[in-house]
Design a protein around this nucleic acid. Structure first.
Lengths: 349, 349
DNA sequence: TTGTTTTACGCAAACGTTTGCGCCACAAAT
DNA sequence: ATTTGTGGCGCAAACGTTTGCGTAAAACAA
């Protein structure tokens, strides 16, 4: 394998100068049509491929965009990644992917890496507690927070009104007459975890009811936790008549345990889920999240800022930008009024 | 925002030459310890961040690795992406992600983009029929095929013995006495789709049985297709007693339809799935795929080739490298012998 | 003292582009 | 026959690093 073809090689072959070749390929009007054709032909002939790093250095900015997420294996973040990749592709940018595993140290390494790559901008789903240095590095260019957001930081944020979402879900159950409503949700060190639980609690407050604190279970967003959490609720002293799950995987875990316990939904228990998943075509009533839409909006916002290159319309407005998407409750067949829940034939515990 | 800090700025501040600063930061032994300390301090002070594009240009190679997959939203590819991202991270490389949607034109654009970014290597899950130019571009650097592979192309491949996997699954059902076994699988324009169906057929051939061609359904890898395919099988003239699904989402679709039809597994029908999914903790017997392991092996292989920089141990061996992982059948509770399948009364133990 | 090695640093070229400026030739206007 | 205009192209600098080579001063051996 010989060296790579450069502009010089083309110039040499055609007895032209490097600058003329560059301009020809850029379709610069001050180059004659004939020359452009010859240059293009020669470039194709020699298999010329532009060197974007060199171009980026000369121009002072590249075409890379960084995406930092906790875990692309998770279908939720996978959806975000895909949407952003398409955004970037449309705008001629490329996506540099970084995984943090929700570890602040890893996060910092990743952010540093992206800074060194001179990304034009960054979309990040921040870890629970990012380092101060991490934020400083992010400030080197335009960046946008997605889904989660860092406390006390002024930077644009695209997210979901999680509090409202869970309030809606819970209120629906309350309206159906349920009072002993269980909650299975994510840990509270994440802003999302806190918001969701607040929504759950607010629904009770609005209805002037006391929050069934004994029926609240928070833990890692994994099926296994949800399954055992539900089992402990079901076998506990105050058996719930309905349950709210605050995450797709948690919903799956709860439903799995419900299946293992041979319970009937909604006969024995009503369930409202949170989020969507392509793998449950089933009858779960759920709060549907416009994940893709949020990601697209986020990507377009960032790309617009990149193109504006610093001189935004109004810096203050931009820094405080908040795009809050409100999810909608989709009712299927997993909830029923409390009274109708009494199983007609069989026994109740 | 002022200009970015460069080596020159540090050199200027400390009255040193640019080269000395560069060497100091690279921990070059020919620089005194005192100077190194001063340089490092000054770099931190000024917020210096290395410019990897410039470095890459000078050194002739960067630290980017390209990953091209059909759809990162799919949890299967998400798993691949995560494993490779971690591989790269460990080796000091960064991952450039490209999504093709299985479209050859998009694929070519992506590959061209990666070439322009001068990626050190590429991992690709090829589209069904890549363009010739796409392959030429890939040849500019080391590349590895993952999962799928392009026909008649000599390039390393990391994949799964899909044929054997489905043969094992099918053979298991045959041993249990099943004969009318349905097959729900992916389309045949993908090499994986063809292999899986061959495995299904080979199991019958080995058992000297005729293949139940009427019970074969192939289509897009989506839940909805699988659900309707199963329904058509169940309501067809030759109702199957067992079924093999050739994909995670297809398994989900079949199970969903089984649930809607209120069928009992394995009482009414035995099911063997293909692949794993974090969202089925259930009792599905399945052929388990070491997805993460394959991806890691693939990544490490590529990175080793990158480090060898062309002069591999043996070029021919490398070009023909095939890493075939054989998945294992995991038996749970979704299969039963044909006779025992006859429902013994109501069976509500 | 002189000669030799070692230590620590500076000079400058090179990587592949892009782009402001200048130059030459040829055509049109005076 | 001069000026003016203009279309088409080349020169060279710059982007931020890395690295081979050169060279002073300091340390050592004679």
């Amino acid at each position: 394998m010989g060296r790579e073809t450069t502009l010089r090689d083309i110039a040499g072959t055609l007895n032209l100068s490097v600058s003329t070749v560059a301009r020809a390929l850029a379709d610069n009007p001050q180059i004659s049509e004939l020359t452009k054709i010859r240059v293009r032909a020669c470039a194709a002939e020699l298999g010329y491929v532009a060197h974007s790093a060199a171009r980026a250095m000369r121009r002072g900015h590249g075409n890379l965009v960084g995406l930092i997420i906790p875990d692309v294996q998770n279908e939720f973040y996978g959806t975000l990644a895909k949407a952003l990749a398409q955004c970037c592709d449309l705008a001629g940018y490329q996506l540099l992917l970084a995984i943090t595993e929700d570890d602040s140290d890893s996060e910092e390494r990743q952010v540093r890496g992206l800074s060194e790559a001179r990304v034009a901008g960054v979309v990040i789903v921040p870890s629970p507690r990012p380092h101060r240095e991490t934020l400083q590095l992010l400030e080197r260019g335009p960046w946008v927070q997605l889904i989660r957001r860092v406390a006390n930081i002024d930077a644009p944020w695209f997210g979901i009104d999680e509090e409202r979402a869970l309030e809606t879900a819970t209120a629906h159950l309350i309206e159906l007459g349920h009072r002993r409503i269980g909650y299975v949700g994510g840990m509270l060190d994440l802003s999302t975890g806190r918001s969701r639980l607040r929504g759950f609690e607010r629904a009770f407050a609005r209805a002037k009811l006391r929050v069934p604190k004994k029926l609240i279970r928070v833990g890692p967003p994994r099926m296994q936790f949800a399954a055992s959490a539900f089992a402990s609720l079901w076998n506990g002293p105050e058996r719930p008549t309905a349950i709210v799950t605050a995450g797709a995987r948690l919903s799956a875990g709860v439903l799995d345990m419900i299946g293992r316990l041979k319970l009937d939904v909604p006969g024995d228990i009503s369930v409202v889920g949170y989020g969507d998943a392509p793998w449950w075509n089933s009858d779960l009533s759920t709060v549907s999240l416009p994940v893709r839409e949020i990601a697209m909006a986020c990507g377009e916002f960032l790309l617009r800022r990149i193109r504006n290159n610093g001189h935004d319309d109004d810096p203050v407005t931009v820094r405080n930008y908040r795009a809050v998407h409100t999810p909608s409750l989709i009712l299927r067949a997993s909830t029923a009024p409390l009274d109708a829940g009494k199983k007609p034939g069989k026994e109740t515990a």
